[in-house]
Simulated assay, not measured.
Amino acid sequence: MSHHLAQLNIGRLVADTDDPRVAEFMGALDRVNGLGRRMPGFVWMLEGSGEPGTGNTETKIDGDPRFVSNLTVWESAEALETFVFGTIHRQFYERRAEWFELLGERHFVMWWVEPGHRPTLDEGLLRLAHLREHGDSDQAFGWAHLKGAGAARAERCAPVAAE
């Protein structure tokens, strides 16, 4: 494939990152992110400070410390799909309602990038805004837009909650 797949997933925690209500999620960040970085097809991840147990939680959206983001690049949709639905990540994905507020709008977006491009959070947020306004397109899309994303189609929840 001549392009790589970028993805941005944002969420708003139900409590501050040091609150016991999100401790299990925060405690698993290093393990899950480390697994992602070792997966076949992984290319790049937007990193935070590198402090243990913080992931990328220091990156604030609209200055809100409870908004967290995950921005990664993968060689293919299949590689991302394998990580999301075929590893321990899936267990945390299935429990996301315990740690994250329901936003009531799409919070997950993917788009194609040239190999070597490292998207910024602002770029991802613009893609997400485009998806929210225009729906799936070649500029910004969810799992349903990808041909052959079988596990994702079978496993995803309602579009507002999952994408």
Rank of each mutant, 00 (worst) to 15 (best):
A6P: 09
I10F: 05
L13M: 14
L13Y: 07
D16V: 09
R21I: 00
V22T: 05
E24N: 11
L29Y: 08
R31D: 14
N33W: 01
N33A: 11
L35P: 00
G36A: 15
V43G: 08
S49T: 14
G53F: 05
T54A: 13
N56L: 06
N56R: 04
D62L: 11
G63F: 06
P65R: 01
R66M: 04
F67H: 13
L71P: 09
L71I: 07
A77Q: 14
E81F: 05
V84Y: 00
F85Y: 15
G86Y: 03
R90K: 12
Q91M: 11
Q91S: 15
R96C: 04
R96T: 03
E101W: 10
L103E: 10
E105A: 12
E105C: 12
R106W: 09
F108T: 13
M110Y: 11
W111V: 06
W111E: 13
W112P: 08
E114Q: 15
H117W: 05
H117M: 08
P119S: 02
L121P: 03
D122Y: 00
L125V: 03
L126G: 03
H130N: 11
L131H: 08
R132D: 06
R132F: 04
G135I: 02
A140T: 06
A140Y: 10
W143R: 14
W143D: 06
A144L: 12
A149R: 08
A152S: 15
E155C: 10
C157H: 14
A158H: 15
E163L: 12
E163G: 02
